[in-house]
């Protein structure tokens, strides 16, 4: 049908002005269809956002991270949280760091601990739980050889360890801050801060896959300022991962003109031939590499 319209538009456009309106109508209808199916529809009628209680740095990236919520509604969300225990999760390895602790749940959900000792056991539990869940997940998927599998696991473990540390620190910091601001509440810890991805629109807990990839590629990318003469270099690369997290495409949309620079970018990308998580969908990102932060 649409084809017909387009064909006819070319022929009859000038002779019959009404056809223009018909085409317009068709376009609008198509547009609405596209909007509905692409999910952009949500913009017009946003569903009630689920509250997010924490930034979960220990979780692996998700396709549709949820949004953050302004602070200060610590009462209500708690109730919601209890009634709807967990948001829909597609990625298997998620060990939840729970929001405000109800002592009874402590055993099951490592909650924000009040003492250092408790914190340690909690993080340990998470540490143990995660790699286990992860490795089973990835091995059932695609890892090409033992070598990469082992390395992937190793680096994942390391990354998680780091993240755990960071999360613990953050929590400590938040606890300090909240003990300053809210004098009354003992339970006012970091997990009380209802946070999520700033640009999140989905319903999954975790960072967005793009953000995760950005951080990983930044870490992978090594280039000395003494390797390049100019600082105004920039290249754009389209990177594609399949749903199993295997790099399937790496295409320079724009090269920088400096082979050393481009080569360093290639290295950075090839260091992550296999993602540590399953995107669960084809993941395609266009990455711009430049040295803006090194310019003086």
């Amino acid at each position: 049908m649409a084809d017909n319209h387009f064909q006819r538009r070319g022929a009859d456009f000038h002779s019959d002005p009404k056809i223009g309106w018909i085409v317009l109508l068709s376009l609008i209808l198509h547009l609405v269809l596209v909007l509905v199916f692409s999910g952009s529809f949500g913009h017009h009628n946003p569903p009630p956002k689920r509250p997010v209680y924490y930034v979960d740095l220990t979780q692996l990236p998700v396709a549709n991270p949820r949004a953050g919520r302004p602070d200060g509604q610590s009462g209500a969300p708690k109730a919601v949280k209890k009634s709807t225990p967990a948001p829909i999760k597609k990625t298997p390895p998620t060990v939840k760091r729970a929001a405000p602790p109800t002592p009874a749940k402590k055993a099951v959900q490592p909650s924000r601990p009040t003492t250092k000792a408790v914190k340690k056991t909690a993080t340990k539990a998470v540490r143990k739980a995660q790699p286990a869940a992860k490795t089973t997940a990835t091995s059932s998927q695609a890892s090409a050889n033992n070598d990469t599998n082992y390395q992937t696991a190793m680096s994942a473990v390391e990354k998680m360890r780091r993240n755990q540390k960071r999360a613990a620190l953050k929590e400590k910091l938040a606890a300090l801050a909240s003990s300053d601001s809210r004098t009354g509440t003992v339970a006012g810890g970091g997990s009380n801060a209802p946070l999520g991805m700033p640009d999140g629109t989905g319903d999954q807990a975790g960072v967005s896959q793009e953000r995760w990839l950005q951080a990983r590629l930044t870490k992978n990318w090594s280039l000395s300022k003494y390797q390049v003469v100019r600082r105004d270099l920039e290249c754009r690369v389209r990177i594609t991962y399949n749903s199993a997290g295997v790099l399937t495409g790496k295409e320079f949309i724009k090269t920088s003109g400096d082979s050393t620079f481009d080569d360093s970018v290639t290295r950075a990308i090839l260091k992550s031939r296999q993602l540590e998580f399953n995107p669960g969908r084809q993941l395609q990102v266009t990455v711009t590499f430049n040295l803006k932060d090194l310019m003086d």
């Binding site: 998927q141 695609a142 890892s143 090409a144 050889n145 399949n242 199993a244 295997v246 790099l247 399937t248 495409g249 790496k250 320079f252 080569d263 290639t266 090839l270 031939r273 296999q274």
Partner: peptide, 21 residues
């Protein structure tokens, strides 16, 4: 099968990246 697929993909990828340079 998945393993084979992954190998194949890695190989093509390496090929592609090698050709770029």
């Amino acid at each position: 099968a998945l393993l084979q697929l992954a190998l194949l993909l890695t190989a093509t990828l390496l090929l592609a990246s090698g050709c770029a340079k």
